[in-house]
């Protein structure tokens, strides 16, 4: 059904020049082209074959009705910022939230580093339980007890 939709577009002047120059000969010589062109013209002629009502005669009357409706239904003009205000508030709330989270995280890291620094100066000696081995490949100063696992 849509195989000749480019005929429509071509006759409407909607094909970009670089394509229409390239293909117009091909299309014009197509066996369906002239039939389609005639059909398109018939449709256009048919659609404009009857006079349409004179809408302008009611123009002022319609405007009056709109004004009345606006008053009766108490229609208000929406503020320019009706959407941007809540969006701004949401952004502000999100910024505060992330600042708090960031502050907490930084504070916690800083305290952990302090503790780690203190602990690193302590020399701890311990005995591994029977059948356990050290599995951490990291800095031995930061090895925690959870890093021990049972020897397979």
């Amino acid at each position: 059904m849509d195989k000749h939709s480019h005929f429509s577009a071509f006759l409407d002047g909607e094909i970009p020049e670089r394509y229409s120059q390239k293909y117009q000969e091909l299309w014009r010589n197509h066996p369906d082209f002239h039939g389609f062109k005639k059909m398109k013209e018939e449709v256009s002629i048919f659609l404009t074959s009857e006079p349409e009502p004179d809408f302008d005669r009611k123009r002022d009357q319609v405007f009056e009705k709109i004004q009345q409706q606006i008053k009766q239904r108490n229609i208000k003009i929406r503020s320019k910022t009706w959407i941007s205000r809540p969006v701004k508030l949401a952004w502000a709330a999100a910024a505060v939230f992330f600042a708090l989270i960031g502050g907490l995280f930084l504070g916690r890291t800083w305290v952990s580093m302090e503790v780690a620094q203190q602990k690193s100066e302590e020399v701890i000696t311990f005995q591994l339980p029977e059948g356990f081995e050290l599995s951490s490949a990291g800095n031995p100063e930061f090895i925690q007890l959870s890093s021990f696992r049972r020897r397979p």
Partner: peptide, 20 residues
């Protein structure tokens, strides 16, 4: 889209012509 417009206009013309 423009492509959608192109297809719809073509279909509309065919449909109307067929009814006529």
């Amino acid at each position: 889209t423009e492509n959608n417009v192109k297809v719809r206009i073509h279909r509309a013309r065919l449909a109307l012509a067929s009814r006529l």
